[in-house]
Design a binder for these strands. Structure first.
Lengths: 229, 229
DNA sequence: CGAGCGATTGAAAAGACTCAACCACCGTGG
DNA sequence: CCACGGTGGTTGAGTCTTTTCAATCGCTCG
């Protein structure tokens, strides 16, 4: 179960150490990191930061999931990314002097640590491996978004949903995908009703199965095939 | 008129010096840059690099325009960006060890210089301002693409075309927009026929005017309004 | 128990795409 | 000089996808 207190999480045990940009850190640096960070417990649907506000630091997810989204014209959310345990959220904003272009908000209860902008930039300055990791990460996200844009522009909604389910299956590794239909629709980029109908189709085709709102992928191959079309 | 020879272009006079990432360079560095680069004349529709190939360096546009695109499933191009004089193309790939995810190809006759990967990375290592500029550039492009994705996912084709025309008007600053209907459709993310019909609508509404294939924007305000809807 | 949100369904309308045909321009070779 | 072929631009008709609007259902929370 989740620890709901604000107690300090030690970086040494944190998943982020293994998976994230901080993986290059040696023991000394982890101790440093541990010293400058602060930890907080977030309830479901609590924002980490808001579009338009000024970045003050980065967020490191110890547990829980976070959606990152922009708002289109009529305020409709477009979910750009779903971050999971071990990921660092908001580091792109550290290098531009601009306000956030996106909002980040928890999808479930989460324990999230915060590292101050100056502390973070200090780490970046003193650790070449970290800096290279960040440049590589920025570049590869840029490349990812090319795929994302191409998908949005060229695939049918059915294809996009298949693609989204593949991504989400990996993000929810092991667990079932657990999103409101509206969030899922906002990730795929479609209307909620359309999304529900397509999920129904997938169910009837035996590709997925639902447990309440939760979605289980039964046939990844078929999803790949549909996504490709 | 364009100089069609392969003669050396001096960085001192190049637009890229003023506008691009290299703007932070002091005179000495410009001399260095000038020494390591090579120049080439490109005909229309000639590729700078191909999706899947290994990056060997960056391209600096002295004159001309370049489209950067990915290919969707059935090979359909999705144009991600149209680069103009002064821009540096392909620098994202310098920081990941992966093959290009996109193809770059000239839209018109161009004079383009090439800087070797190791020379470029050397410059990045020795010039902190350049490095910071690059990180900022990567971050802000990432932010741009969020808008791009949201547009693709939520706007109608009409809205996307309006948005594209606004962007292209800036890129073709002063000149008329000059793209094949197919390229424009691949930028907007639609079928060529749909694109042509929408252009016709815009013409009838007095928002644009065509001169052969070239497009002149008459009413930017209306485009903004349509794009916003 | 009632309010309210999220999930679901139906029906109709709008938006885009596909296919097929035709036009217009341009450079080539005879 | 002119017919030819090819590419890019345009139009029409029909179809499919997706959205929109309206209504219903189920569940949880106070």
């Amino acid at each position: 179960m989740l620890d709901k207190s604000h107690k300090h999480i030690t970086c040494e045990n944190c998943l982020a150490k293994k998976n994230s940009l901080f993986k290059s850190f040696c023991d000394d640096q982890v101790v440093d990191l541990n010293a400058v960070k602060t930890c907080a417990y977030y309830k479901k649907n609590q924002p980490l930061f808001l579009e338009g506000s000024l970045p003050r630091g980065v967020f490191c997810l110890n547990s829980g999931k976070v959606k990152v989204f922009a708002r289109g014209e009529e305020g409709k959310e477009q979910i750009i990314h779903v971050a999971k345990e071990g990921e660092i959220v908001g580091f792109r904003a550290m290098f531009s002097e601009e306000p956030y272009k996106v909002t980040a908000s928890t999808l479930e209860e989460s324990n999230i640590c915060f590292i101050n902008k100056s502390d973070f930039l200090n780490l970046v300055d003193t650790n070449i491996t970290l800096r290279n990791g960040i440049m590589k990460e920025l570049s590869s996200e840029l490349a990812n978004r090319v795929t994302y844009i191409t998908n949005m522009a060229q695939k049918s909604v059915r294809g996009r949903l298949a693609f989204a389910l593949i991504l989400l299956e990996e993000i929810y590794a092991g667990e079932l995908i657990n999103l409101t239909r509206e969030d899922l629709a906002n990730f795929v980029g479609t209307a909620t009703e359309t999304l529900i109908r397509l999920l129904k189709d997938f169910k009837e085709e035996g590709i997925i199965q639902t447990h309440g709102r939760k979605i289980e992928v039964l046939n990844r191959e078929d999803l790949l095939k549909i996504s490709g079309a």
